[in-house]
Design a protein around this nucleic acid. Structure first.
Lengths: 205, 205
DNA sequence: TAGATTGTTAATCGATTAACAATC
DNA sequence: TAGATTGTTAATCGATTAACAATC
């Protein structure tokens, strides 16, 4: 019987991973401790050790964690050893920004396709990509066995696009549309709506 | 003694607000219930009632909630009756997308300034705005008593910009830089890093 | 009135933290 | 060895849910 690992724990692993890479690459550190990592992230050292303990024993008493080793382990756990090809749906300003963003590199993802329905945009070059007709969405996704997509279409079209993506096998969706989307069990969805984030903060002003 | 309302409750209020507006504007509904709202958002009706109960009694037994009334109340709670002027720091692709995004309208925010350090970009028109020299950041923020900012600069500059914003009075920051930022108590910070969100989802693939 | 739904209480469930033996 | 830090246990803390009297 495999223990069910809490979602909230999974959600912190990428944060640990990002900071560990920063420690190694930007600061040239070889080792770190749960205390050091926690201090930098505003997370208790106990929580970091507890989170990691769900997956194995990665540290050594007295010396802490070898950063490169822990990075490798976290990448395995999160299935980031391979590179995931990502489809972006919507070639507006935000789709444009995503197509040009280099922050995906070496972090497990590559934007490989971008779709739009506007005849003016279809065929246009965007960074390394050419904007494809969204009419071919199903064909491209299915043929390439795409599992990850980013939705940057208007709210009015987001549910339809979601349904089409899910129907042809996409199982991880990041949506920038300001709307709650319904997805079947087994499909992960994550949202990014700047207004929602700002509205939470104005409460405290 | 005022009850301390959990952060996690505050975080759900904007979600409720967004869906209530959708119910009213897109579907013409006048009333709703915690059950209906919860079903649409994938949240239990008990949680919605409990969350709202922290702030008062907004519903009626038998008939539920009058949507417009609840919307008004939530806007008051979240301090969205006024419009907050927002400074965007960074006029790259993402800053460009934010400047053109119309999703802030009627939701409590207006992008009023955009800054960059690149002489090529300073002076350029972006939607209704002109790109300002980041050297004038402190002056503009202080003179206009700006409390809310969005950071879209490279990770390498994000902490410096954060410190400068905080020093002149900004207290709510939304950062798109892929890095954890240190802020003093009393300053709220929220992050948006698409890679972090994608990495959490690939665990389940 | 009968049916529906609220606001709230108490119980349950789950996450975080403190503490420490083990050990590098 | 002495100091440091892990992984883990138990205690604490906090959030969610079930249930229901009140009442529209």
């Amino acid at each position: 019987m495999t223990r069910e690992i809490p979602d909230i724990v999974i959600g912190r692993l990428p944060i640990y991973l990002r900071e560990l890479i920063r420690l190694a690459e930007d600061e040239g550190k070889i080792n770190t401790s749960s205390h050091e990592l926690g201090k930098r992230l505003g997370i208790s050292s106990a929580q970091i050790r507890k989170d990691l303990s769900h997956f194995g024993e990665f540290g050594k008493q007295g010396t802490g964690y070898h950063i490169n080793y822990l990075v490798t382990q976290l990448r395995e756990i999160l299935q980031l050893s391979q590179e995931w090809h990502v489809a972006v749906v919507g070639a507006g300003y935000l789709g444009h920004a995503l197509a040009h963003y280099h922050g995906f590199e070496h972090r497990g993802f590559r934007i490989s396709w971008i779709f739009d329905s506007d005849p003016e945009k279809i065929g246009q070059q965007m960074d390394q990509l050419v904007v494809l007709d969204v009419a071919n969405l199903e064909k491209v996704i299915a043929e390439n066995n795409v599992k990850v997509a980013i939705i940057v279409v208007p709210a009015s079209h987001a549910q339809e696009i979601t349904d089409r993506l899910v129907a042809v096998g996409v199982r991880s969706i990041l949506s920038y549309a300001p709307i709650h989307l319904a997805v079947p069990a087994g499909v992960e969805i994550s949202y990014s709506d700047p207004v929602i984030q700002l509205q939470r903060m104005t409460y405290y002003l």
